[in-house]
Write a protein that binds this DNA or RNA. Structure first.
Lengths: 257, 257
DNA sequence: TAACAGAACTCGTCATAACAAGTTGTGCCA
DNA sequence: TGGCACAACTTGTTATGACGAGTTCTGTTA
């Protein structure tokens, strides 16, 4: 391997070459090249990928190396293979790990997803019983409600309904909520030290309004998360997050911390 | 492969042979043999497994076949590998899929786990606000509470606190709750047609009582599920399930149904 | 007796090769 | 023109082999 030569690979995107001199294993480099092509849309969902033989030639490596790379992508759910037929790009079901509290954009960006939000509404409302319980206030007290429709790779993926103490909400609405995560704004611009969130996850059936926003059928399953985010003991941000059940999943892992 | 000869493998348990004539791939048969040994305790958690060379000899196959089998077990989280050191049995973190409503025993048995319960208490109590809300009754109304400590492969794994309408609870307590799932009793003995459950999943910190029952530290993370099980529109069984966070996980998958 | 070098072990990576099993395309014949 | 056989493609399985990189063991020397 130390005598590897660098091999350029004809591809739609520049920079997609594997480097035989690199300490990174060949199968890992190839996997990353293919993953980028899948995530950036070079390979469209459900499209057939080049055959293993073709990739052998294109990358100049053995079939076992190609199969190792493809096996990893299959494990991640990015592709599926059909014996005798070929390898195909899976419609990627995006996921967010719940092992660490993160805003949506910052969670998805490292995996190559493009995200942004459309503001649906931002207004002061009277707290419902559930919201009040979460903030430790009385039902009817004022809270600030912000509703957003979130997009993942230009597809609607979730509806987020967030509640804040009014003072925070009024400031938030002055910020760019389309491209920035509220968590980042709270920390970097407002100086809050977010510490933890209480999560609840359930599957629900889309009502007419949610279905319309998300471009799904009424009655379709949504993944609903309630998330109460704190700074120390102070409740800051209570959210209902509704995700398309067919396009998103949470992977929940509990670790001793 | 059609000319394969059958190879007997020295093992602690009979029946652990691979059959070269079988249409099942060799790497799959080997994987299953190893999985059985892991799950039945032949290989203790964290114990080192035979090396790849040793398994090659024992099973009479090539190293790639052994590595394929081990790779699958690693993918499942049953083993872990350390380069230069060996392969080790992971302390298996049991999991229950949430794609289908199941009682604990019926969920775990197909994966080779041994389960049973110890009854902690069974009594009629006044419904708390949460419990009342779930049953659509008034706080203070009577419900029947059954508390159990659940074991998985003879280790305490969860504390279950279940609530029923009193009439159902009184009948349940007459049954064998140590070895049988309540869901099975409700369906087979009582004739209820369980249809669905509402789940909520969160991680909590073990209080003193839960920690003591589960053999874990106070403050250790527990996976807590609230599960409301219905027969049609009728709420039948409301439960708080507390699982050791270090030993159990739910894998949640939302599918269009 | 301790330290170090080298051997012998481990898993990781990559190559070449062959055949099985499934799918698709093509050419030929009735 | 349709059906069938066969070729040519695809991925799946398995083999042999070699070397890299990490860990452990053993023997020798100071």
């Amino acid at each position: 391997m130390s005598s590897r030569k660098q091999i350029a690979v004809v591809s739609k995107t520049s920079g997609d070459a594997i480097d035989a001199v690199s300490p990174v294993p060949l199968h890992t480099q190839i996997r990353e090249v293919l993953r980028r092509r899948i995530l950036d849309g070079s390979y469209a969902p459900h499209s057939q990928m080049p055959s293993e033989s073709q990739m052998m030639e294109a990358f100049g490596v053995s079939r076992i190396t190609i199969r190792q790379a493809l096996g990893d992508l299959q494990k991640e759910g990015l592709i599926f293979k059909v014996m005798g037929k070929g390898s195909f790009v899976a419609k990627p079901k995006a996921f967010q790990s719940l092992s660490r509290l993160q805003g949506f954009g910052e969670a998805m960006a490292p995996s190559g997803y493009e995200t942004y939000s459309m503001l649906l509404s931002a207004r002061q409302v009277e707290a419902s019983q559930v919201v009040a319980a979460r903030f430790g206030i009385r039902p009817g007290d004022a809270v600030f409600e912000i509703q957003r429709l979130r997009y993942l790779n230009r597809e609607p993926i979730s509806v987020d309904v967030s509640y804040f103490p009014p003072a925070i909400g009024e400031r938030l609405v002055q910020e760019d909520l389309a491209t920035r995560d509220i968590f980042v704004i709270l920390e970097n611009d407002f100086g809050h030290d977010l510490t933890h969130a209480d999560l609840q996850i359930e599957a629900i059936s889309a009502d007419e309004s949610l279905a319309r926003h998300l471009g799904t059928d009424e009655g379709a399953p949504l993944l609903r998360m309630e998330r109460m985010t704190y700074a120390g003991e102070q409740p800051l941000d209570f959210e209902f997050l509704y995700y398309r059940g067919d396009a998103f999943q949470y992977r929940l892992r509990i670790e001793r911390s």
